[in-house]
Amino acid sequence: MYSVEVQHISKSYTVKKATTPALKDISFAVKKGELFGIIGPDGAGKTSLFRILTTLLLADEGTATVEGLDVVKAYKAIREQVGYMPGRFSLYQDLTVKENLDFFATIFNTSVEENYDLIKDIYVQIEPFRDRKAGKLSGGMKQKLALSCALIHRPKVLFLDEPTTGVDAVSRKEFWEMLKRLKEQGITILVSTPYMDEAEMCDRVALMQNGSILSIDTPQQIVASFAQTMLAVRSASMLQLLNKVRASSFVENAYPSGIYHHVILKQQATADQLQQELSAAAFADLEIKKGQPTIEDCFMQLMRI
């Protein structure tokens, strides 16, 4: 049984007569209790997709259901069952932490006490600041408060639009740990992010670019399906090395990745051939090894197709 089903959804915006497609014929399904990631850079269409699924936006074409309910016809019923955290910080900045939480609890026909067990984990971290105005919280704290508010009515499906954008690495890590624990409670979670390294925290991911889905699979499977040979190279002069590698006839693509350059070889080319070519150029401290593709490497490779 699926929690979210999307079939052939398209959406475009018209501004001053220019029509820009935001979503192009998107289809996917999310299983109940799954932690599903939608990964892509700004402008991929993540927010439009979330807005359609949370009944805030009408698609031009296609259908979608959340918990078996149609997003257009049954929008009222869906609104009772989903939790939504928009991309921007969308709480009342001039209300305190406690006031915000109480307010959202009432609006969603419940009380903080009723579902305290669900948010307890998260809320205890911000409880010391409960009389502080939301606008005065740090990025990580705001995010925890927003998540508490989105969870307060014990939703069956949680939509989190770029919850970790602009948040530092520590808070990001903590946030994903919170999501894992929520998943254990049986909540289906859809989360979007521009950070490719967050893909591995998800059960399954959809890689999105320019309104289309490049691939849907488990992160492990996506990495495993990377077909080309990838090498990691480094030397004392990285810029020259990159220029040299890019100019090589054996190389399909090369780009910096951490302390190495990732080099993707052409179909017939072998690592030895490149090794010989680079050795001939006498780079100091040259190191060539087999590269381990990441989701980001896969994403870039998929973007080229």
Binding site: L56, F89, F108
Partner: peptide, 13 residues
């Protein structure tokens, strides 16, 4: 502008 209207719309209110 703040985006809070989005949450209000998604709520059962």
């Amino acid at each position: 502008e703040m985006g809070t209207m989005e949450i209000m719309l998604v709520s059962p209110m």
